[in-house]
Design a protein around this nucleic acid. Structure first.
Lengths: 189, 189
DNA sequence: GGTGGCATGTAACCGGTTACATGATTAT
DNA sequence: ATAATCATGTAACCGGTTACATGCCACC
């Protein structure tokens, strides 16, 4: 199950996911980016509107014109079938050590969208892969720290130990998250 | 002590710091970016060489020509007085809640360079500010989670709890880091 | 004779940021 | 009046990515 490189930016996928959850206008989406920890994905109109246009040209979303609160025309975007397919593929792609090491934010963004799949088995599997990857990352950082113990100055060492502690926190989180998903799973049956 | 916006990119500062620690060639620097967790700052020649040129035009670094292992000409960059001043100002700027929330990587990068200042009092202060900010971040995420408890689906909630756990790990790290710096401080006296 | 490491660079491209522009409505 | 919120967009700029180009040396 190799992961293909998405031709859509992370911003694009984050928009797609939000739209899939709830059809929205560009303005709605901007608000979300401003007010939640998704903040660091732009939120500037110069990023969002072009990205929406891009998704639209690719046929992943389409828009319904309407009238907003102020009487002005509004574009409400909704996710198409193709968009859903694209999104779901992205959500189903494996969690690699590389991705946890280099783009943790994306890995967590994807996780936060897993409600859309409504497949708790995959959620559990996702977390399992995440744990494996996080463990690898811990090991990597630890090795690096040891190999640099002699050369590297104190603050560098401490910064590396920060990396380790944080990956450990991710590990613990993954455990408790798995537990609460499994609990939820039992409840459903 | 308000923080001014740096006109130099994070990549620029990370290069400047490495050069200050040890005069290096572009190739040396690329290797570091490839092999350490600083990885996600580019490492591509298309980023590093222009950035070095930029630092040079601003007079923050200058280069000494030499001959490399292969007989080819090499440019070894060294940090100028102006560069040092610029770098130190950056290292001395306050740790704000905003920066911890939005650009933690930069905050930690700056920390890892604090050896250069050789001022353990500031290191301790830096961590103190960091802790304050991290606590604020925990609170923010927690508030957000509570305010969204009713609307937001399970995975979103869990992702937020991940944020909290991670900030807590940063807090704990800051405590232990402070302790080891203070120990070091006593040893010096 | 080819691969891989040393060493430096350029050019096309792409996407995000900043700042600006527009204009209506509602609250102060 | 005027500020703030709703709502959508454009244009200039900037910086990073990818991929390519060059060339020498050492090793197998």
């Amino acid at each position: 199950m190799p992961n293909e490189k998405p031709d859509i930016s992370t911003l694009g996928f984050s928009l797609l996911g939000l739209i899939k959850m709830q059809p929205s206008t560009g303005y709605d989406l901007r608000k979300i980016f401003k007010e939640t920890p998704m903040a660091h994905y732009s939120s500037s109109p110069g990023a969002i509107y072009p990205a929406l246009k891009n998704l639209q040209t690719r046929g992943l979303i389409r828009c319904k014109s309407g009238v907003g609160k102020t009487g002005r025309d509004t574009q409400t975007y909704i996710c198409t079938g193709a968009g859903t397919k694209k999104l779901f593929r992205w959500l189903r792609s494996d969690v690699t050590t590389e991705s946890v090491y280099r783009e943790l934010d994306v890995v967590l963004l994807r996780f936060s969208y897993l409600d859309l799949l409504d497949d708790l088995d995959w959620s559990v599997e996702y977390l399992k892969q995440f744990q494996g990857a996080a463990r690898e990352c811990c090991k990597r950082v630890d090795e690096l720290r040891q190999s640099m113990a002699s050369i590297q100055p104190m603050h560098g060492q401490l910064a590396l130990s920060n990396g380790e502690k944080v990956f450990e926190a991710h590990l613990k989180w993954a455990e408790s998250a798995t537990a609460s998903i499994k609990k939820n799973q039992r409840k459903r049956q």
